[in-house]
């Protein structure tokens, strides 16, 4: 596939340099170099967080983080893949928790060690305000924490960079679950629909559709009213 006239750049993997086509993502460059990936690879589209990668670009002292499937290689880039972050995941019963900071004191007490250095936010490949949501949790603002952390992919780079040894993404998951379970507004129509279905309100209509002759069903389908608003 790769045309021979493609310009090549170098990517340094764990200290060893490889020549790869310009414009490659880190992930496709690794495969181009001969690695068959079994860790540090997942959805390949930026949704699963399996391919967190630390890198430094040529001539720049800054340590950066990115997703291997979403980050384009620059010439002379040094990379180290971070396929896994060591972190315990305690058990809890959501039904026994309250949507406030007390739940975190029980389950993730280490988050209160946050020194507000903002290193987590700087490394986040999703540009999430990581430190801000941790601070929100500490003061019991679970709703804002859930909102700010919504787009988290749990790649774990924040936890690796944290000098206070927090596992931010686990706390964020709990914050969102607490919000969804206790703070989200009741979905009134949903509950009514569930009850109606249980009471058999639609059974007859569905049964008649199930046994309807093909032509009649087709006719009904193409004549049905379509609403988009």
């Amino acid at each position: 596939m790769m045309a021979t006239e493609t310009k090549m750049v170098s990517m340094v993997v764990m200290g060893e340099s490889f020549r790869v086509p310009e414009g490659s993502t880190i992930m496709s460059a690794l495969e181009y170099s001969g690695f068959q990936l079994t860790t540090g690879v997942g959805c390949r589209e930026g949704y699963c967080g399996a391919c967190g990668t630390l890198y430094r670009e040529h001539g720049d002292y800054k340590l950066k983080g990115g997703l291997a499937c979403q980050t384009v290689v620059s010439d002379g880039m040094h990379i180290a893949q971070i396929p896994f972050v060591p972190a315990d995941k305690p058990s809890y019963d959501l039904e026994e928790l309250t949507p406030d900071e007390d739940s975190f004191k029980k389950i993730y007490p280490e988050i209160f060690r946050c020194v507000a250095c903002n290193t987590c936010t700087k490394i986040c490949p999703q540009d999430i305000q990581v430190m801000d949501y941790i601070q929100c949790i500490m003061r019991g603002d679970i709703a804002t924490a859930a909102d700010l952390s919504f787009d988290c992919l749990r790649c774990g780079l924040c936890a690796l960079r944290c000098p206070a040894e927090l596992v931010q993404y686990n706390a964020a998951t709990l914050a969102r679950r607490l919000y969804g379970r206790y703070l989200a507004k009741p979905a009134v129509r949903l509950d009514r629909m569930v009850e109606d279905i249980k009471a058999g309100k639609y059974d007859e209509e569905i049964e008649s559709l199930k046994t309807m002759e093909h032509e009649e069903l087709k006719d009904r389908y193409y004549k049905r009213e379509v609403r988009t608003k």
Binding site: R176, R177, G180, A184, L190
Partner: peptide, 10 residues
């Protein structure tokens, strides 16, 4: 309803 009970934010 089950997913909301588990804390999914729709």
């Amino acid at each position: 309803a089950w997913l909301r009970q588990l804390g999914v934010m729709f």
